[in-house]
């Protein structure tokens, strides 16, 4: 949709974005400061807090684990979440109305309690491997974005278009991929971004689900911060921003989703 914008709206939105971005300059400044503590404006310029991350082996290995968990967990959440979102909107009358709210539960239950319960009931009682439970736990944690954010996009989708395609002989699954999905791609991308970031940043659930030999990047950063108060944490934030841009570019290229640019 594109209509002319009222100047007041444009100004307000610019202000909002200015405020969103302003602290990022402070963090960027702090991340290159040649001091052993966080400071702004930076004193001297160095990249050693960035190279530091790559030199510490625990950061490297946990970054890989975190990436795997975030990508697989998000993919799993979308894989089961999108059909659920579709069913909730397409067959609204045939599914109970409370079902949609069930998918909010993973972010409604305090994360510490969720992690604690998962460790107690799933990892220990069922004896499942740490990595699997960590992955499932993250998929669960980001499921609300997959179901509800995609669902919000589907709510404004006109299902009569889909019915027309099917009545013209297009198979339902093909119709979904060629007619429905392109129309909700912005919602899918938004859900992907939110889910990926939530998983990458998660501490509280991971605290309990990591185990011997398996840890995640945010937990490793917390560990580092117990003893070191240097700008490494700022440079990690900056690197995560760069990484996210990269991941979004890859998603755009491989899945061919028109990245918010319709």
């Amino acid at each position: 949709m594109r209509t002319s914008l009222h100047p007041a709206l444009t100004i307000t939105a610019s202000l909002i974005f200015a405020i969103l971005v302003a602290p990022l300059f402070i963090i960027l400044g702090a991340s290159v400061s040649d001091t052993s503590y966080l400071t702004f404006p930076p004193q001297g310029i160095t990249l050693r807090w960035f190279t530091n991350i790559f030199e510490i082996s625990a950061f490297r290995t946990t970054a890989i684990t975190s990436l795997q968990i975030a990508l697989l967990g998000t993919a799993l959440a979308l894989l089961i979440g999108i059909p659920a979102a579709y069913a909730l909107n397409r067959f609204r009358i045939r599914l109970p109305s409370w079902l949609a709210n069930v998918f909010v539960l993973p972010i409604l239950v305090p994360e510490i309690v969720l992690g604690f319960s998962l460790l107690k009931s799933v990892t220990i009682s069922l004896g499942l491997p740490v990595f699997i439970v960590l992955l499932l736990g993250h998929a669960l944690l980001v499921l609300p974005y997959a179901v509800r954010v995609v669902g919000a996009s589907l709510a404004s989708f006109d299902f009569s278009i889909e019915e027309a395609a099917i009545s013209l002989g297009c198979p339902p699954l093909k119709t979904f991929f060629t007619v429905v999905l392109p129309n909700i791609s912005a919602g899918v991308i938004a859900a992907f971004i939110l889910a990926f970031i939530t998983s990458m940043n998660d501490v509280s659930v991971s605290l309990f689900l990591t185990g011997p030999g398996i840890s995640t990047l945010p937990i490793q950063i917390l560990a580092h911060m117990e003893q070191f108060f240097d700008p490494t944490i700022a440079s990690v934030s900056v690197l995560l921003m760069i990484l996210t841009v990269g991941v979004m570019a890859i998603v755009e290229a491989t899945l061919g989703l028109t990245f918010l640019t319709k």
Partner: peptide, 30 residues
């Protein structure tokens, strides 16, 4: 805890592995 992992590895873990002939795995956190 998991901080200073590389120094711990060089000073303690690798030498100890040679003595004991065992593997060492970590659980990290607060």
């Amino acid at each position: 805890w998991g901080y200073n992992g590389d120094k711990l590895n060089a000073n303690i873990i690798e030498p100890f592995k040679k003595i004991c002939g065992c593997d060492i795995v970590f659980e990290t956190g607060n």
